[in-house]
């Protein structure tokens, strides 16, 4: 119950900050515009498609990949570091609910609200640029997969963010994480367009489950194998996050923050 309230609070907070939200969505549209121009140029040079993708499929791919990465607050590590420093975490530890659970519920609420805004605006924009969704009715599946991707991203960030319990200056880890998703996750370029050897390294990794998998579903190239991989990473991600926080909180109790 507490988690549901936390989730709703996060969502409400996002929707209330209209200025931030519209800036974020506006920037995403610009990125979609830029990347679709890139793929348009590439598709034109190659008789209408790049590898297995048509131009339309690529636009929908980009839209979903962006809508899974833009909404997640990327500075979880920094935030957790600040919460430890300010003693906020210590206060949260007094509550009869899991610290990391509540935190993730809030972030999920906030991110999901943002994701839906991104999908609505981005979807309309993609339709304008490239026609109706390439996946057709299966786009609904893509929306579901996009939610799983969001959850995974939040879980992984918290697992990584727990580093802040041990290292004071781990601020920039999020930055590297972001760059890894950009290339290794397939935000900028669908992974199966990479040289085969490189693709076969990246596709099984969790970064791919965050951007490449929902993108593929939106382009109509999804497969259940990809979703199973995503679910496996979800279990690993949440497990690690809870484990790291349990250890971290114990450490905080001993050292007294």
């Amino acid at each position: 119950m507490a988690y549901l309230t936390a989730f709703l609070t996060g969502a409400r907070r996002t929707l209330a900050a209209r200025g931030d939200l519209s800036t974020q969505v506006g920037m995403m549209l610009l990125v979609i515009l830029a990347l679709s121009s890139v793929w348009h140029a590439a598709a034109v040079a190659h008789g209408g498609h790049v590898g297995a993708y048509t131009f339309g499929e690529l636009v929908w791919y980009i839209t979903f990949a962006e809508a899974c990465t833009v909404p997640v607050p990327a500075r979880v590590i920094e935030d957790i570091g600040e919460e430890i420093g300010s003693g906020e975490i210590a206060v949260a530890m007094l509550r009869p609910a899991s610290v990391v659970g509540i935190r993730m519920a809030i972030d999920t609420g906030a991110a999901l609200a943002r994701q839906w805004c991104c999908l609505l605006a981005g979807g309309a924009f993609a339709w304008l640029l490239a026609g109706p969704p390439s996946a057709g009715a299966a786009t609904v599946q893509a929306v579901g997969v996009a939610f799983l991707a969001l959850l995974l991203s939040i879980a992984l960030q918290h697992a990584l963010g727990g580093i802040a319990f041990w290292l004071n200056d781990a601020r920039s880890t999020w930055f590297l994480f972001q760059k890894l998703i950009l290339i290794g996750g397939g935000v900028l370029i669908p992974l199966n367009l990479l040289p085969h050897a490189v693709a076969s390294i990246f596709i099984p990794l969790p970064f791919a489950a965050i951007a490449y998998v929902p993108g593929s579903f939106a382009a109509g190239h999804g497969s259940w194998g990809l979703v199973i991989g995503q679910l496996c990473w979800l279990i690993v991600g949440f497990g690690t996050a809870f484990l790291v926080f349990a250890r971290g909180e114990r450490r905080l109790e001993v050292l007294g923050g």
Partner: peptide, 19 residues
């Protein structure tokens, strides 16, 4: 990271719009 992206892109595409 960006240079890597463009490297991969042009590896795939060759030239595009003269670039």
């Amino acid at each position: 990271a960006w240079i890597v992206f463009w490297g991969l892109f042009f590896h795939r595409v060759g030239t595009a719009n003269g670039w």
